[in-house]
Design a protein around this nucleic acid. Structure first.
Lengths: 136, 136, 136, 136
DNA sequence: GTGGTCTAGACCACC
DNA sequence: GTGGTCTAGACCACG
């Protein structure tokens, strides 16, 4: 089982947090379906080039959130999450991020139109990067 | 001199950082004009109910960034910032936040339209809170 | 030979332990009489939907405790247990569990009466579940 | 700040779990009031003679449960818990333990009266130990 | 093979 | 001083 995790070495964001965010997104978006067996902590640790313990923490945190189920000697699985819960969660992380962005805009007295423009610029740039990077 | 600083106790974001972000925004948006005398470290510490050490760090950081200027025995002032620099900076914090939001959206496979809708919902909600809270 | 074993998937309690506890109880209460031939490892493994390794461990543990006896090529039997030993054992597991419960109560400063009330509530609830579930 | 934590070296129960159970009980029973500053992780580690990391895990687990609040550079506090929540939680741990005890009793076909008798015996014994140990 | 616990120790960030 | 992150490694328990 292979999972695409991208680490930003330069970011001040803790390793474990970067990984959690990406795993949550994979689960909430359905790219990791219920019941899927995740890679073992040792495997994933090797593939993201970090300590086993860091991955253990990630799996444990997500288990505490109810997203994963782990059975000793067997491995770690994606837990059952109600569809409505999943959809709600899927949006909430995004909404939260947009609230932070709007707060930043309001603080420097951006108009609504200015923010909409910024969003469109950013979207265009990101989507372009996606298609360009798609051939990698 | 009174400065409106809002602290979110529940947030994991460090105190000093919350304050810096807000001060920067006040300066870049022109709400704190060049030459303005800031409150003393003790005063500001008292008004945000935190340690003077925290405020000292804030002033120090912003001075290092060239946004503040301290004159011995007189106090701390808002430094001169070039207009084009100010405008660029004003936008950059906002753009950064929107990039994070778009990243969050892309991770859970939101469409562009979905993100635009979310932004409009958030904007409406925040603006409403502003006008409601304006009478406080 | 059919043996009623209930597995709680959600519990953190290891599989082998859940099974051992239930087998012991069946033996000490006389529901599995001395000399009874137990199902083969493979059969029991299939019926509780777990690995044969797990069942092998269970049989081994109980044999080490002197509760089971394995004869090569024949199978695994319930061993002879002295009556007084059996009676003592029968109670000891129960007493142990009640000691843990009382400890939990004392820790949060429950009065004796409060604990008696709780026991009666729980008893009533469990007995009701028994008679309801009896038709299954 | 001194906190009475008793470790059972012989028990198979993990260290961190023993500590969590006792801290939860102290909080739910009100012996550790809201807002109380707990000992630093290093202090508590020293007093229970275990690794700092074990205590860190304890504090973090309880923070995830919403029982503690920790602020970097300041320390760890008992969080605000709604009274009704606290009362409910206080009982639920006890009820859970009694359910396990009753299950154990039912498995070996104890009568209700037998369990009541056992409870009274255990209570008497424990209370006696309390008063005897009170002079320590 | 899997995960779970505990350790020691380094280094950083915050107040 | 406080807590937070990450590391390496030992040893145990489970299936």
């Amino acid at each position: 089982m292979w999972i695409p995790i991208q680490i930003n070495e330069l970011s001040a964001e803790p390793l474990y947090h970067q990984i959690e965010v990406q795993l949550r997104a994979l689960i909430f978006s359905g790219q990791l379906a219920e019941g899927t067996l995740l890679p073992s902590i040792r495997e994933l640790a090797q593939s993201v080039k970090c300590s086993v313990i860091t991955i253990r923490r990630v799996y444990q945190d997500l288990e505490n959130e109810g997203l994963l189920r782990t059975r000793q000697g067997t491995g770690t699985f994606v837990a059952k999450v109600g569809d409505e819960v999943r959809d709600q969660q899927r949006r909430s992380a995004v909404i939260e991020a947009f609230e932070a962005a709007v707060d930043a805009g309001i603080r420097v007295q951006c108009s609504d139109e200015e923010m909409l423009t910024i969003l469109q610029e950013v979207l265009q740039r990101k989507r372009q990067m996606e298609t360009e990077g798609g051939g990698e």
